[in-house]
Simulated assay, not measured.
Amino acid sequence: MAAVTSVMRVQQLLLSRVDDVLKPYGLTFALYEALRLLAFTRAGSLPMGKMGIRLMVHPASVTNAIGKLEQRGLVERSVSPADRRVVLASITPAGRLLAEEATDALNQADFGLPGVAPGAAAELAETLRDIRFHAGDTDVNGS
């Protein structure tokens, strides 16, 4: 129980620290994740359903996040030319710029892990990935 309680508390602390870094950019961690995911794609766009799978969130959460980003001109929605039933979310140049600026700020803040050596962070990530896998997470290599 101590390990679970500790992991849950660390999650709260990290989310708070990351949100503090992202706040000046008008982003929450969820919005940042959506922008970063789109920025990492070759075409700068993904079907919204696939975004939900990759971000491991409910489709309504993706719709909400993309709506907020779209209002700010950071993302655009369009119908897929290959399948009109599919809605694509595409990052705009302004979205790419903001994602890079926010990532630089997070890097400067050690992504909320101050004082943790890169090797220790990588080891921790591997341990958490193992826990996720054994708990049934099917996308442990995605994040």
Results as ranks from 00 to 15, higher is better:
Val87Ala: 00
Ser78Arg: 01
Ser61Cys: 14
Glu123Ile: 02
Pro93Leu: 03
Leu97Thr: 03
Thr63Asn: 10
Thr41Lys: 04
Val87Leu: 07
Ala121Asp: 14
Leu13Asp: 13
Arg96Glu: 13
Thr28Val: 05
Leu74Trp: 14
Glu70Ala: 10
Val57Trp: 05
Lys68Gln: 09
Ala94Arg: 10
Pro118Lys: 04
Phe40His: 11
Leu15Ala: 12
Leu31Met: 04
Val18Thr: 07
Val75Gly: 01
Ala105Phe: 10
Asp110Gly: 06
Ala99Met: 13
Met51Ile: 02
Arg77Pro: 01
Thr92Ile: 08
Ala65Asp: 13
Arg54Met: 13
Arg17Ile: 05
Glu123Ala: 08
Ala125Asp: 04
Ile91Thr: 01
Pro81Thr: 05
Leu27Trp: 15
Ile53Asn: 03
Gly95Cys: 01
Leu88Asn: 00
Ala99Pro: 08
Ser80Trp: 06
Thr41Ala: 08
Ala121Tyr: 01
Asp130Tyr: 01
Tyr32Glu: 11
Thr28Met: 10
Arg84Asp: 05
Leu106Trp: 07
Gly67Thr: 07
Ala121Ile: 07
Pro81Ile: 00
Pro24Leu: 11
Gly95Lys: 02
Thr28Ala: 09
Ser78Cys: 00
Leu15His: 13
Glu70Lys: 10
Ser90Ala: 15
Lys23His: 12
Leu97Val: 14
Thr103Gly: 11
Asp20Tyr: 02
Val57Tyr: 02
Val86Tyr: 02
Gln71Glu: 11
Arg17Cys: 03
Val21Glu: 08
Pro47Tyr: 03
Asp83Ala: 02
Ala60Asn: 14
Leu46Gln: 05
Glu70Gln: 08
Ala60Gln: 04
Phe111Ser: 14
Pro24Met: 01
Leu106Gly: 09
His58Trp: 08
Arg17Asp: 06
Gly49Ile: 10
Val75Ala: 01
Ala82His: 01
Gly49Ser: 15
Arg77Asp: 01
Met56Arg: 09
Arg54Cys: 07
Leu97Met: 10
Gln12Tyr: 11
Pro118Val: 02
Gly52Gln: 13
Ala99His: 06
Pro47Gln: 14
Ala109Arg: 15
Val57Phe: 09
Ala89Asp: 02
Gln108Leu: 03
